[in-house]
């Protein structure tokens, strides 16, 4: 099978997985959900890294790569930290990890 066709399969199936998983996320956690998906999609860092490291393609390419790495890293670092910060705040009344009220 053609490689791009396989990629299309991956995309569509992942989209379905995303749809079925995310429809079950309660409205309570919609803000953390958004920051979480934002952090996860910063996986485009992987592409940026290769670009910034392939310095044999010329300086302009490496500089574009450097900028892309910077932006994607901002989202990876900031995104996971802020998601964790938010999720830490959600406590059940007298729940297992609940701080005393």
């Amino acid at each position: 099978m053609n490689l791009q066709l396989i990629e299309l399969y991956v995309f569509i199936l992942a989209g379905f997985v995303g749809f079925f998983v995310i429809t079950k996320v309660p409205a309570l956690l919609h803000t953390p959900l958004m920051s979480a998906t934002n952090a996860i999609s910063a996986i485009s860092l992987v592409g940026s890294l290769v670009l910034a490291g392939a310095t044999d393609r010329g300086t302009l390419s490496a500089v574009l790569g450097f900028l892309a790495v910077t932006c994607a890293t901002i989202n990876v670092v900031g995104g996971f930290i802020i998601t964790d910060r938010m999720l830490r705040m959600f406590k059940r009344e007298g729940g297992p990890k609940g701080r005393a009220r």
């Binding site: 490689l3 992942a14 992987v46 592409g47």
Partner: peptide, 28 residues
């Protein structure tokens, strides 16, 4: 956009993560 990056450079993890993000934003 992340997903399309995955298609352009032939990287499945980008396609998957981008699709998850795309689905999430769409549902919201």
């Amino acid at each position: 956009a992340s997903s399309a990056t995955g298609f352009a450079i032939g990287n499945n993890v980008l396609i998957i993560a981008g699709a998850l993000d795309g689905a999430s934003g769409f549902i919201l």
